[in-house]
């Protein structure tokens, strides 16, 4: 029983972490058809921004609960600034290129941002563990879990709900869906696709930065953390079906649970789990679990 609860909790916590990272990635792909490797940099910028903002804030002697707002603020500011700069300054010159070329463009951005981060923050690790330890822990079947991690599950669910609501229940979201399904027709019908692209990219960047900011309290923020999460996020998104938010959720859950099962039952398999799951899903659903229908070229 203890084992089952541990497996479930670990799996869901890991999945909620994965989902926050993958959500922005899949959104950007869905709308813009860009598999954005620079998403890892957004994550890193969020983490660095969050850690240093929390550091400044707490050094000023303000009430500690405000640190959570610092994390959110860092994500919002960092994601918006970097997202706008990259989309307006660079990507718009490249629209219409091959998907592969766009991957490489975002890879180049990742390389550049990696060094920009180093120039701003240096290579020494940053810590902001106060928000992580402040909430204490909960005992479940004899096992302690950090309340911060449990909170992360709810935050992740909230993000998922907001994205679903925004896409399906608002006018702007419906317009965005039109762009996702057929960019040219949408433009033809008078939707300002360029604006949509900018807004989507900024939202995606903020989500990426948010993932980093939310992760920062539990880790040591250091160079290279962004690169590490990209492939994880790619795998989740591919399993779920590129461009689908629901797919990212399901992909994150599958990967999270499979990984935690491996860690508890057969630790040697931990490294293979994610690729094994991806292979298995693709073998049966070559386009991922929730693929967006595309027209065939004849």
């Amino acid at each position: 029983m203890k084992l089952v609860i541990a497996m479930l909790m670990d799996g869901v916590i890991y999945a909620s972490w994965l989902f926050v990272i993958a959500a922005g990635l899949t959104l950007i792909y869905g709308v813009m058809r860009i598999l954005n490797m620079a998403h890892g940099s957004f994550y890193a910028i969020g983490a660095y921004g969050g850690a240093s903002l929390v550091g400044f804030y707490l050094a000023g002697g303000y009430p500690p609960w405000g640190a959570y707002f610092m994390l959110l603020g860092a994500a919002l500011i960092g994601g918006t600034v970097v997202g706008l700069l990259i989309e307006r300054g660079l990507l718009r010159m490249m629209y219409g290129r091959d998907e592969v070329v766009m991957i490489l463009v975002t890879y180049a951005i990742l390389l550049i941002l990696e060094d920009v981060i180093k120039l701003i923050w240096g290579v020494d690790a940053y810590f902001a563990y106060q928000p992580y330890t402040l909430l204490g822990r909960t005992k479940l079947a004899g096992l302690s879990f950090a309340n911060y991690d449990i909170l992360l599950i709810f935050v992740s669910a909230l993000i998922c709900f907001v994205l679903w609501w925004g896409l399906n229940r608002t006018r702007k979201g419906k317009l965005l869906q039109a762009v996702i399904h057929d960019r040219d027709t949408a433009a033809f019908l008078g939707i300002n696709v360029t604006r949509m692209f900018t807004v989507t990219f900024v939202i995606g960047a903020v989500l990426g930065a948010l993932a980093g900011a939310l992760t920062a309290p539990g880790i040591s923020v250091m160079p290279g953390i962004g690169v590490e999460v990209i492939i994880l996020a790619f795998a989740v998104v591919v399993i779920g079906g590129l461009g689908s938010v629901g797919g990212a959720l399901l992909g994150a859950l599958i990967v999270g649970l499979a990984r935690s099962a491996a860690v508890h039952l057969y630790p040697d398999a931990e490294l293979f789990v994610i690729y094994g799951v991806m292979g298995l899903v693709l073998a049966f659903r070559p386009q991922g679990l929730f693929a967006i229908a595309t027209a065939r070229k004849i």
């Binding site: 203890k2 670990d10 890991y14 040697d268």
Partner: peptide
């Protein structure tokens, strides 16, 4: 044996606790 630079050790910590 988690992956190097994994950063998230929740499941491993649970396994160590169990």
């Amino acid at each position: 044996f988690p992956k190097i630079y994994a950063g998230q050790y929740g499941a491993e910590i649970s396994a160590l606790m169990v």
